Computed example of a mutant assay.
Amino acid sequence: MHIHHLGEKNSVLNHFIAEIRDINVQKDRMRFRKNMERIGEIMSYELSKTLNYESRNVSTPLGEKASSFISNDIVICSILRAGLSLHHGLLNYFDGSDNCFISAYRHHHSETEFEIVVEYLASPSLEGKTVLLADPMLATGQSFLSVYDALKPMGKPKEVHLLSTIAAPEGIAYLEKNLPKDTHLWVAAIDERLNNKGYIIPGLGDAGDLAYGTKLQN
């Protein structure tokens, strides 16, 4: 797996990451969503450098100019519900993309044991597409893998890019072991570890709750 750790070098990205972690800033739900959207935009810009381009002429009021256009056929797929704010950031930059939405949540058998349940899927064909699969938190890696498997009947993509705001080393290792070698992982920050409940330390808490409000537990 190709890992792109964008937070290794300081940029405004790290400023936004710091704000979504801050328990005082987190009290402003709208700002949390906006910062997650901004992070998605920055990740889109960095990812765009690896895409394919074609030259086409553009007519201006005074003539024509050969210009570069993205030639990849992109589908943005977000894991509900935490991925929605990140999805908006990706869509702001790849505005002509098709969209896919899929649900995945932890069904707990105990405080430390759970399984990933995938229930809802709305997707176009992924055959030959460039798929951007977004989920803000990469903890154990099980959600990404479960969703990746659930999308297989939709067609074989040309390439797959996973995008996550904060990741744990254990989750990255799990995906490296279980996903194809040519998969790309784009991550803004890599944290210290998982705790015994499978949550990222220091992390930021539950991204879905912070963006959209608390939910009843399954």
Rank of each mutant, 00 (worst) to 15 (best):
D73P: 01
K156C: 03
K158G: 05
N52C: 00
K215P: 01
Y199C: 04
L126F: 07
E111W: 08
R56V: 01
Y105K: 11
I79G: 07
Y148N: 09
I116D: 01
P61H: 11
L204Y: 00
R31H: 12
G155L: 01
H184A: 08
C77S: 14
L216W: 05
A134M: 08
A207L: 11
S59V: 15
D206H: 07
M137D: 12
R33A: 03
S85H: 02
E8F: 06
E159I: 09
L62D: 02
E54A: 12
G208A: 05
F69C: 08
Y212M: 02
Y148P: 13
K158N: 05
L126C: 04
T50S: 14
T214V: 14
G63W: 07
D135H: 14
N99H: 14
S143C: 10
I23W: 14
Y174W: 08
A173H: 05
H87L: 07
P169Y: 05
K181N: 08
E64Y: 06
T50N: 14
K181T: 07
G83D: 04
L91G: 04
L133E: 01
G83I: 03
S123N: 03
L175H: 05
Q217R: 13
P61M: 13
K181E: 06
V75P: 02
V75H: 02
I39T: 08
K215C: 05
Y148E: 09
Y199G: 02
M154R: 15
T60L: 15
N196I: 15
R38T: 11
V25M: 12
P153V: 07
I166E: 03
G89E: 04
V12W: 10
R193V: 03
G40N: 09
R31T: 12
E119H: 11
D28H: 11
S146D: 12
F32C: 07
D206A: 01
I201R: 06
E119V: 03
P124L: 08
H4S: 11
E37T: 07
V187P: 06
L132K: 00
M1T: 10
A18C: 12
L84D: 09
K158E: 11
L6N: 11
H4P: 06
M43C: 09
D22C: 01
E113D: 14
S143N: 07
F114C: 14
F144G: 10
L133H: 02
I190C: 00
G205K: 00
M30T: 14
L194A: 10
R21T: 12
L84Y: 11
A167P: 01
N178W: 11
M43R: 03
F16C: 05
S68H: 08
Y212I: 05
Q217V: 10
N52P: 00
V187W: 02
P202W: 01
D73R: 14
S146I: 09
H161A: 13
D135Y: 10
H5W: 06
K181Y: 01
I166L: 02
P61Q: 09
A168R: 05
A173E: 14
S125N: 07
S85T: 04
L133V: 05
A150P: 06
I116R: 00
G63N: 12
T130G: 03
I39Y: 01
V187H: 03
I200S: 00
L138W: 00
L204A: 01
E119N: 15
Y148F: 14
L175K: 04
S123F: 03
H15N: 07
D209H: 11
Q26W: 13
V25P: 06
A66V: 06
E159P: 05
F101M: 15
